[in-house]
């Protein structure tokens, strides 16, 4: 194999890639730097500075959500990876199953739960606690929505590297006198760093760019960068040029954060 013909098999895809991946991204850049009449401008990029507070809020909420997913997901993945194989399969199935219900509906169900006269308050009311009026329509609710929706994205890559950690490595560390905390931080964390990197990326990227979760759970006063971009393309404040500029800024932030984190991940690897 490896003849002329087999190499040609990639050519339809390469044409596809050029039209549907490269050209659209060039269009975003092009729109970001032009006016409605197609003249070059940096005004759109300049206007994005007005959205710095929104950008910071989006980054902050995404960082918190990612951290919570890591804190919740790390022990869970490790516990699962040490179980009997048949139990591992069953638990993974249980973790993936909720993803088969559309995320909008699951998020909507949280609205039902968190509302002032919602189910959580009704339940607590049975014990004479509450009602709590401010569980919905705030940043905490947005973080809850992100953690809820993206936790499986953290657990699956973590699990897939942790399940390869040989039990004897952990036993060896324990025999050599490491206590439980030392085993986790000196053995398990370094060996699962690639899973941590993948998991963090898979949670952080959708979190920072979400636009519907924030609208549903944040109540409209906590717009994130995704909401602002959406409004420029399909909402009331139609302006694809500004929208493209904001999309470009978002893309650059995501790339920067990820390459920084990647660097950090690589150093960890070398240190081990």
């Amino acid at each position: 194999m490896g003849s002329f013909k087999t190499k040609l098999m990639a050519s339809p895809y390469i044409i596809w890639m050029a039209i549907f991946i490269i050209v659209p991204l060039c269009l975003v850049i092009g729109f970001a730097f032009t006016t409605k009449d197609g003249k070059f401008t940096i005004e759109n990029i300049a206007i994005t500075t007005e959205y710095v507070p929104v950008l910071l809020r989006s980054m902050w909420l995404a960082v918190i959500s990612t951290a919570i997913c890591l804190l919740l997901g790390f022990p869970l993945s490790f516990i699962i990876s040490r179980l009997m194989p048949n139990k591992q399969g069953m638990l993974l199935t249980l973790l993936i199953l909720p993803m088969w219900i559309n995320f909008l509906l699951r998020t909507y169900a949280w609205m039902t739960l968190l509302e002032s006269n919602g189910l959580i308050n009704k339940f607590l009311g049975l014990f004479g606690i509450g009602p709590f009026d401010n569980m919905l329509n705030n940043q905490g609710a947005i973080v809850l929505g992100m953690v809820y929706n993206y936790l499986p994205f953290m657990i699956l890559p973590l699990y897939s590297v942790m399940t390869k950690i040989d039990e004897s490595v952990i036993e060896a560390a324990q025999d050599l006198g490491a206590n439980y905390i030392k085993v986790i931080f000196k053995v398990v964390v370094p060996l699962s760093i690639q899973g941590i990197y993948t998991g963090v990326t898979m949670v952080f990227v959708p979190s920072i760019s979400t636009f519907i979760i924030s609208r549903m759970l944040g109540g409209g006063s906590n717009d994130l960068i995704g909401d602002i971009i959406e409004q420029q393309f399909l909402g009331n404040s139609y302006n694809p040029h500004l929208g493209s500029a904001l999309a470009l800024v978002l893309m650059v932030i995501v790339l920067l954060v990820m390459s920084l984190f990647n660097q950090f991940g690589n150093e960890e690897n070398i240190a081990v």
Partner: peptide, 8 residues
């Protein structure tokens, strides 16, 4: 981010 794939 999906939103960028979408708008592009």
């Amino acid at each position: 981010p999906e939103i960028i794939t979408g708008v592009s």
